[in-house]
Amino acid sequence: MRPILMKGHERPLTFLRYNRDGDLLFSCAKDHTPTVWYADNGDRLGTYRGHNGAVWSCDVSRDSARLITGSADQTAKLWDVSTGRELFSFRFDAPARSVEFAIGDALAVITTDNFMDHVPTVQVKHIAEDLDDQTDESALVITGIKGRINRAVWGPLNRTIITAGEDATIRIWDSETGKLLKESDKESGHQKTISSLSKSSDWSHFITGSLDKSAKLWDARTLTLIKTYVTERPVNAVDISPTHDTVVLGGGQDAMNVTMTDRRAGKFEAKFYHKILQEEIGGVKGHFGPINALAFNPDGRSFSSGGEDGYVRLHHFDSDYFKM
């Protein structure tokens, strides 16, 4: 395959997200400007200007009308997808890291970092259909997690919120009361910072990638460990194929060591593992730095990766990929 290279960002990529139809790809980077691309040919459709810091993550509503982004400038912003206009800005007193719309797009979960003397929080905001009704108030604030929360997502049917982060523990919270329901086992769970978390398309299970050089597959309701994928480098990004029994892992050494090694030794490939057999299927090379973000197209026929090198690489699988 000949990947499409998209050089719209000047700084390392942080997050990639496809919309539900799989025709738009949203990319976030440390360069303050989230960007939207056409997911088939990689043409840039537009940019969302207004953030004043690195953008850590984004999510798009089911109808692809609204985008929410979380940034280090201590805001999370709502955008009009089609025009790039800023609709609303949620202010926090710490950088906003992870954002996600709930099913129905009426709620959003936003995490804030531990910053100065603020503890990390998970906050749930109401997203009003009419912008005039939009408020800054949180419907729920969860505290009590030590260390940065790298990812917070909604559990099945919006009943729970799943968090993962620096303390290597995955927690499931009640999204109504904010009560801690489950916590991952210290023994079988990750040993180091969990860098990424991605849900299966039916939300029944999810995968976490960690700096302990492994990725783990978990049941989204019971938090049972289902599978472990062992690799030889820290995992920065993970995703689950929506159509095939494959998972993709991306990573590489620390960004600070990149210049000291050869591209081949750096292991900057996206690694594909069989979801069930847990064995490595293959890899796709290309990035000049660690992979920070990975996303499968909802149709399962392509995937994109974003690297520390500032490139987004869009790969359309060759036909032999489907004959596995």
Partner: peptide, 25 residues
């Protein structure tokens, strides 16, 4: 197109097809 994409110069070539054939190893 909107934002920076609207002001983009025609020859900016932000999107390129990789000249190298990348195999699924």
């Amino acid at each position: 197109k909107f934002g920076d994409a609207a002001r983009e110069a025609a020859g900016s070539r932000l999107t390129m097809v990789c000249t190298e054939e990348i195999l699924f190893d």
